[in-house]
């Protein structure tokens, strides 16, 4: 069996499921946040901070960033394996993108922690 060591899941089927599950979470988060901003116009600091100070919103935000890490990891792997045939370059690019997504998660934890 050919294993895809650079991807997130342990198999193609695992990747397939993870990509869709994380996509659904990201869709829900995006729709909720755009809907919230659109419905609470004019948006004030009190409303905005009040939203992110609640535990469910903190969990939702971190859940979305974890989903982003998984979704971007698999998505970038799919794009890079198609367009970058050079293994060394592909490995470097995959590393950069995954570290970026991981940094987003770390930043997100710090941001919602303090609210």
């Amino acid at each position: 069996m050919v294993t895809n060591a650079a991807s997130f899941g342990r198999s193609g089927v695992h990747d397939f499921i993870l990509l869709r599950a994380s996509g659904v979470i990201l869709a829900c988060y995006s729709i909720f946040l755009i809907g919230f901003i659109a419905c609470s116009a004019p948006l004030t600091f009190e409303i905005w901070q009040g939203l992110f100070s609640t535990l469910p919103m903190k969990v939702f935000t971190l859940l979305a960033l974890i989903a982003l890490l998984i979704h971007a990891w698999i998505g970038v792997w799919q794009v890079l394996t198609d367009y970058v045939p050079n293994t060394a370059l592909r490995g470097v690019l995959q590393f950069i993108f995954v570290v970026t997504a991981l940094s987003y998660l770390a930043a997100g934890i710090v941001i919602v922690w303090g609210v």
């Binding site: 600091f45 905005w48 930043a107 303090g114």
Partner: peptide, 23 residues
Amino acid sequence: RISGVIMLFAIGILLWLLNSSLT
């Protein structure tokens, strides 16, 4: 694919804005 990669960079901008707007 293009819109996905664009957003991967965009999230950095949005997180920076979120941080400033919540502090």
